[in-house]
């Protein structure tokens, strides 16, 4: 499964990155790499069954502290 996920990501990168380098959009390329790395890491962690903390629970914790809930 992990090989499948990584290979899908590699194929996408091989398709996208040369395009961006050819068009000389360095800003776009760095933004792409940043979000792409996050997506890749999250996908691998999910496939490996690692418990990723949900951002929603963080939001609930803050609202709980502020007593802002029904």
């Amino acid at each position: 499964m992990i090989i499948l996920v990584v290979s899908i990501y590699i194929i996408i990168a091989l398709y996208q990155v040369p395009n961006l380098i050819k068009r000389e959009c360095m800003r776009d390329l760095s933004a792409f790499c940043f979000f792409y790395t996050i997506a890749l890491v999250l996908s691998i962690l999910y496939v490996l069954d690692v418990k990723i903390p949900s951002p929603i629970s963080g939001m609930e914790l803050i609202l709980d502290k502020l007593q802002l809930h029904y």
Partner: peptide
């Protein structure tokens, strides 16, 4: 950025994983 289209795949990937783990 010059175009938003570069980010379609990475943002979609993150959104899918967050949809799995949200609740």
């Amino acid at each position: 950025l010059k175009s938003y289209k570069t980010l379609i795949i990475p943002i979609g990937g993150i959104a899918i994983i967050i949809a799995f783990i949200a609740y």
